[in-house]
Design a protein around this nucleic acid. Sequence first.
DNA 1: TCTGGGGTCCTAGGACCC
DNA 2: TCTGGGGTCCTAGGACCC
Length: 427
Amino acid sequence: MKGIVDCNSFYCSCERLFQPHLDNKPVVVLSNNDGCIVSRSDEAKSLGVKMAGPYFLAKPLIEEHNVATFSSNYNLYGDLSWRVMETLKMILGEENVEVYSVDEAFIDLGENGENDWKQIGLQIRKTIEQWTGIMVSVGIAPTKVLSKVANHLAKKDKRAAECVVVLDAYEKIIAALQNTPVGEIWGVGRQYAKKLTDMHAVFTAYDLSQKSPEWAHRNLGGVVGIRLIKELRGEHANEMKDELKEKKMIATTRMFGRNVKSIIEIKEAIATYTAKAAEKLRRQYSAANTISIFVVAKGQNHNIDFRHGESIGTYTRLPIATSSTHELIKPAIELVDKIFVHGTIYKKAGVMLSGLVPDKTIQGNLFTEEKHNGKRLLMSAIDNVNFAMRDDVIKFATSGTKRNWKMRMEMRSPRYTSRWDELYKVS
DNA sequence: TCTGGGGTCCTAGGACCC
DNA sequence: TCTGGGGTCCTAGGACCC
């Protein structure tokens, strides 16, 4: 059996942990730049606050009902996420836990049919709550896709289900599939949901499970669709992934806190993001051989299609893969000259590093001088200082010192668990 | 005035090879 | 007068996830 353990309203729960007076009160957490709503407590949901909706549209509703509002505090969420995942690994053994996102993990419960799955689920839930203060929902079923269906049901009816739903019998699975709209299935997004209901009269997960693999291949993205249907029928097609593998791409992208017009500021931003991305790169001991940048101009039809405002990008391939910030910044800011258009108003920019290889096996060429060790020592010294002191104490001059374009973050709570000077105070 | 920031996998099609 | 067949590798883009 497989399971998924999912933290309830994770970011909101993290905030409440240190402000218990907010229990049972509506809470929301905003995305970077205080742009969108990315987490809502149950109370906020029932007030009608929309997920991923723009904050400024929801503001009247939020103010009317006195909803507690927070900017994202990723230091806090990251630390609590780590605690939840460690707890889960201690209960089930590290090899049986696949961390899937900041607030979710798949678990492998083995194939022993004698177990009382519900009890196991309840035990997991209780332990995580006791050890970390975070409430989770658990879905348990024969496959990953079905466990996600179970988890959905657990969340829909929290009290009745005690946040644990087990699908361990044929009838239960069929009933669950019949009660799940096709668009709620893990792996069916907006495009496919529309296509399935409009063109194929497939409305529920059950309808979809009745389709043939050939049909899925034709209409649901090839092999991906075949796997999905197999899993709905209880046949394994998505195995547990071992170990967190190294990332294949590393990106740092941000909206600006205000409109940006000058090439100087775009270059500062690109240099800053490159430094950030390079740091992530070194953390996983990789080096990149391709660097891409993009900028997004303020769109004409901003209201209709804000997300896909025209994005212009370009990339360059480096002669040798590297993880040194200065070797990445230089080509990155040179790329800005290629795409910057004078007089344009920019909203966003980003840097992506790809073609990642292990740091140790960098393919050199005849004409490069090997000064690698010195560079690596320098970079790790900088990383260490920045890690200990935080807030990028050491930065590259091209990153700028004022950074007027930085994102807004006006309602962030203290980083209670990861900064000495922001520790929770008991008076 | 104000709409996030990461990632993954897969496929089609072009370039190129013999 | 006549122009194959079978590969590989790479990239762009589309779908999805949280």
